[in-house]
Design a protein around this nucleic acid. Structure first.
Length: 927
RNA sequence: GCCUAGGUGGUGGAACUGGUAGACACGCAGGACUUAAAAUCCUGUUCCCGUUAAGGGAGUGCGGGUUCGAUUCCCGCCCUAGGUACCA
């Protein structure tokens, strides 16, 4: 029988599904291992050949770990709330749940064709009520929590209430809003219920507050910072503006430091760690107050270089700064107002793009230098951002390039503050010199000056050491329909949690998926809330990242109706050992997940500080578009003639995308091309060597470029095993690469060779029980070792090559020995599960048992040779090959090599200065 | 600008801690089998010189350095991709 992937693969996929082959058990002596893929949003386009890359890699790893004796949890599900289904619903009126279900079914079908070892009994969908019940429940825990800086963790809000009741707000160190009140226990007791709730809201981890948000009018919703790219929405690319609104937020800033520290404890790709670091944006410095006596207030600035404080020659405020209007003198008012007007007209994009033009205006007021007491001018300029730090900076032209340019432009003083500064052309920020013109720190070094200054500022009550973060709290509400309802109702304008017993708070039906006439979110249309007459429900829903910020826990115990997962299952599976997915989630999902994980840990629901121990980013697979060249006539109109790539330069042509599915190895199938479109029916071709060669270009995979390759097509032509091997063979997992079917034949040929190892010339199954030869053992033990090494370091592409070498060797040896072939099958199983499963059962083993076979033990003895040949160079130049017996000591090797006639001839009487040994061999002779 | 990753044949890529650069595969060329084609198998394939050959030379983005020996380590530069951006 020949290798027939079609029937064989279907057969085993059904067998695995029917027998629950990949269900892990929690009652086992085996150590656990949790392999997770980032679950997909099920889009309408289905999977293309790029999507499964990471899934194949994780599947190989999961299968390998099973062979290595681990109890493996390898689940899959869907992040099924999201904008596209809702946009589609707005256009067609079809309920998003229906589209979503249809898309999920398509995804599932496609994934099943690839032969993944997921435990589908644990499938989850974030839009299912029995799932989002727990997303809502977690929201409630976060609402009922505050961050205690003393214990450095989140605690139940009750511990805060207790403190308020016993000692008031005194001595409480919490992460909270800026505008918290100070009160005694007695005052707290005298607060009304409403006043108490209003105050508590300023401490909760999930809170409601008036904040400046990114409002996207086209999408009709607010967006989180990571959903806005260059002032445009990530989805759809619509303009985004800043707007003040009452909004749900998550106090992620409470965790800024722990999120940063945790990065050192996890094994993630460096670029990703770096992205999170930048996003969190910790800067260590000082906050300094510049008094403005005439209006009896201070301008607070943040600086990372307090040591340059004596170089301050002016202070700059952002044009949006609260004090601008009070500080502006009558003489300057017209100028300032004109400037504010001008900058407010600039869009976010313009302001970012234009960093060269120097602009600003003088307010007319002066502040006092906190140490010298001298007057410094107060300016406004749009290079100072309202959203970072305090929205004001102390300008040190000698130490900061922006301040330098500004000072030059407006003729403000530039004071050197270090004896090593070079200020002819630019600011000089070096910290190496000794201070000059700097009062009491003159002559000090940087290391001495900083603590001295901080102490001085504290003494003057005009400053203190401060750590600043770039990261802002995450906006949590969305004015959309297709998301989790927030389990909150309002009383006198204040939010209260609904009863836990009322969970899940079901997403109500609406007549339309658009905002109401009065501008409320779509949920304002709902008429079937359970307690509609009693409650004034919250109308916004949760953002897309809510459901994905805890989903790895649900897989541990997906059907549990009493908890998001049982205590036992959480204690057993702990956290994800290996997580595979794209780097586009660096500052979104991966940050929010770490945040929720830490909060849930603090509140006592599990014990793991980090959710994903090791993370791998698979590279994006790009499309490889093909082009045909249509010949143009004198007027530049297209003719029916198409010219092959190599000859196109002698014609006037236009390049047209052609469907990559009718091109093989860059050769166009001309008949299929003619049939593809009516206006190509009469096409004529100018061929080279009898073929029409297409041009190519690497672009994003998309329908409009005719370069989408569907995995189903590859599978029906070559089989799932070929697809799996080929996707791995394409190159390093983490590298972005274009899809290119050109090499797939080689992988397919390899699988046929594997099949033939088990079949005789007539095609009958045949293996021998004889003892393998040394050469056969050697071939197999090489691959046992190689795959072990490769899989552990995620170098799947080199394994595929090694398999090919191994099978070529066994084919040359005409090997048919059961002992070596069985080992080969086990080692190959993670990569090509279908063919190995089939051959395994033909060998007489129980069906399905290969998935839990023991990974063969590598025996280095099989790789050792009795004699080895190796090259010896003279002065680094390769000269000759020598062959020596093994087990010689260094001295004997030395004598034998030097006695060798060839060596003597090359040395030509010259004296040997040194012999270089590597692993007991002489590798180089220095003369 | 800054941060991160990378630059190796016609192509995808290999070379794990410095030790025969180009494994493996594609493509291409030639051959075997076949009436023929497909399929399959075999041989060759970094570049240059050498009629074939024996042989020689160059070669991992560019320029230096360390070393007996560098794709690998160090310094400077160029280019590509991703991220980020008046963050004080």
């Amino acid at each position: 029988m020949e290798y027939n992937h079609q029937s064989l693969e279907k057969k085993w996929q059904h067998f695995w599904a029917d027998n629950g082959t990949f269900k892990p058990s929690e009652s086992t002596d085996k150590p656990k291992y949790y392999v997770l893929d980032m679950f997909p949003y099920p889009s309408g386009a289905g999977l293309h050949v790029g999507h499964p890359l990471g899934y194949i890699a994780s599947d190989i790893f999961a299968r390998y770990k099973r062979l290595k004796g681990f109890n493996v949890l390898h689940p899959m599900g869907y992040d099924s709330f999201g904008l596209p289904a809702e946009q589609y619903a707005i256009q067609t009126g079809q309920h998003p749940a229906i589209t979503t279900d249809a898309n999920i079914n398509r995804y599932r079908e496609q994934m099943d064709n690839i032969g993944f070892s997921y435990d589908w009994s644990r499938e989850i969908r974030t839009s299912n009520a029995d799932y989002y019940k727990w997303t809502q429940w977690i929201f409630m825990q976060l609402f009922d929590a505050w961050y205690n800086k003393d214990s450095d963790k989140a605690e139940s809000i009750n511990t805060l209430i207790e403190k308020f009741e016993t000692s008031g707000s005194l001595g409480i160190k919490a992460v909270s809003d800026e505008d918290v009140n100070e009160f005694t226990a007695a005052e707290w007791g005298a607060y009304s219920e409403e006043e108490q709730q209003r105050e508590l809201l300023k401490y909760r981890l999930a809170y409601l507050r008036e904040s400046t948000v990114n409002w996207c009018a086209a999408l009709g919703t607010v967006l989180a910072n990571d959903e806005v790219i260059n002032g445009l929405s990530e989805r759809g690319g619509y303009p985004v503006e800043q707007k003040k609104m009452m909004q749900w937020s998550m106090r992620i800033t409470a965790y800024a430091d722990r999120l940063l520290r945790g990065l050192d404890t996890i094994d993630w790709p460096e670029p990703l760690v770096e992205m999170q670091r930048n996003w969190i944006g910790k800067s260590v410095g000082a906050s300094v107050k510049f008094p403005v006596p005439q209006i009896n207030t201070d301008i607070e600035v943040f600086t990372t270089r307090v040591d340059t404080i004596f170089g301050v020659s002016f202070v700059v405020l952002a044009p949006e700064h609260d004090l601008v209007s009070t500080l502006t003198t009558e003489a300057q008012r017209a100028e300032i107002e004109a400037y504010i007007d001008k900058t407010s007209k600039k869009s976010e994009l313009d302001r970012m793009a234009d960093t060269k033009t120097v602009s600003g205006a003088f307010t007319g007021s002066f502040a006092k230098h906190p140490i010298t007491g001298e007057d410094v001018q107060i300016w406004i300029a749009d290079y100072v951002l309202a959203g970072y730090g305090t929205g004001a900076v102390m300008a040190v032209p000698s130490g900061d390039q922006r301040d330098y340019v500004f000072a030059k432009h407006f003729n403000l003083p530039i004071v050197p503050i270090s004896d090593t500064q070079q200020l002819d052309e630019a600011a000089d920020a070096n910290k190496d010199g000794k201070y000059i013109n700097s009062g009491f720190i003159n002559g000090m070094t940087y290391e001495e000056a900083v603590p001295a200054l901080v102490a001085k500022l504290e003494e003057l009550k005009l400053g203190k050491a401060k750590v600043n973060f770039r990261m802002r709290d995450a906006i949590f509400g969305r004015q959309r329909y297709w998301g989790e309802p927030v389990p909150v109702y309002f009383k006198n304008g204040l939010p209260y949690l609904i009863n836990e017993a009322e969970l899940p708070l079901l997403l109500p039906e609406v007549d339309k998926y658009l905002p109401t006439e009065s501008g409320e979110p779509p949920l304002g249309r709902a008429t079937d809330w359970k307690y509609q007459d009693q409650y004034e429900y919250e109308l916004s829903t949760m953002p897309g990242w809510a459901g994905s910020s805890w989903y790895w826990f649900r897989y541990m115990d997906p059907q549990n109706a009493d908890a998001f997962a049982s205590k036992e299952s959480v204690e057993y599976w702990k956290s994800v050992d290996l997580y595979i997915g794209g780097s586009e989630h660096a500052t979104g999902h991966l940050l929010y997940s770490r945040f929720w994980n830490k909060a849930l840990k603090d509140l006592g629901f599990h014990n793991e500080e980090e959710p994903f121990k090791k993370l791998i980013n698979q590279g994006m697979i790009q499309g490889r578009s093909s082009f045909v060249y249509r010949v143009l006539d004198e007027e530049g109109r297209g003719t029916n003639q198409f010219v092959s790539l190599g000859l196109k330069d002698s014609y006037k042509t236009i390049a047209l995308h052609v469907d990559v599915n009718i091109v093989h190895n860059d050769v166009l199938d001309t008949e299929k091309f003619k049939a593809s479109r009516p206006d190509y029916a009469l096409a004529e071709f100018v061929l080279e060597n009898g073929k029409y060669i297409c041009g190519t270009e690497v672009e994003k995979m998309s329908k409009s470029k005719f370069n989408v390759v569907n995995p189903d097509d590859i599978i029906s032509a070559y089989g799932a095993d070929t697809l799996r091997l080929y996707e791995m063979f394409l190159g390093p997992l983490e590298q972005a690469k274009p899809w290119n079917t050109n090499g797939i034949e080689g992988v397919y040929k390899f699988l046929r060779k594997v099949w033939r190892l088990f079949h005789d010339a007539e095609g009958n199954f045949h293996v021998s029980d004889e003892e393998p030869t040394k050469a056969e053992f050697k071939a197999v033990h090489k691959i046992i070792k190689k795959v072990e090494d490769d899989v552990e370091r995620f170098s799947f592409n080199t394994s595929v090559s090694a398999f090919m070498i191994c099978v070529n060797e066994l084919t040359d040896l005409k090997s048919d020995k059961r002992k070596v072939l069985e080992d080969l099958l086990i080692v190959l199983q993670p990569y090509a599960p279908h063919i190995t499963e089939e051959l395994w059962s033909l060998l007489g083993h129980k069906a399905g048992s290969i998935s839990y076979a023991a990974y063969p033990v590598f025996n280095p003895a099989y790789l050792v040779e009795s004699e080895f040949a190796y090259p010896v160079s003279v002065n680094g130049k390769m000269k000759m090959n020598l062959s020596l017996a093994l087990d010689l000591d260094q001295k004997t090797v030395e004598e034998t090599v030097l006695a060798n006639a060839d060596v003597q001839r090359y040395l030509d009487g010259k004296a040997v200065k040194k012999l270089i040994f590597v692993k007991g061999k002489i590798i180089n002779i220095v003369v």
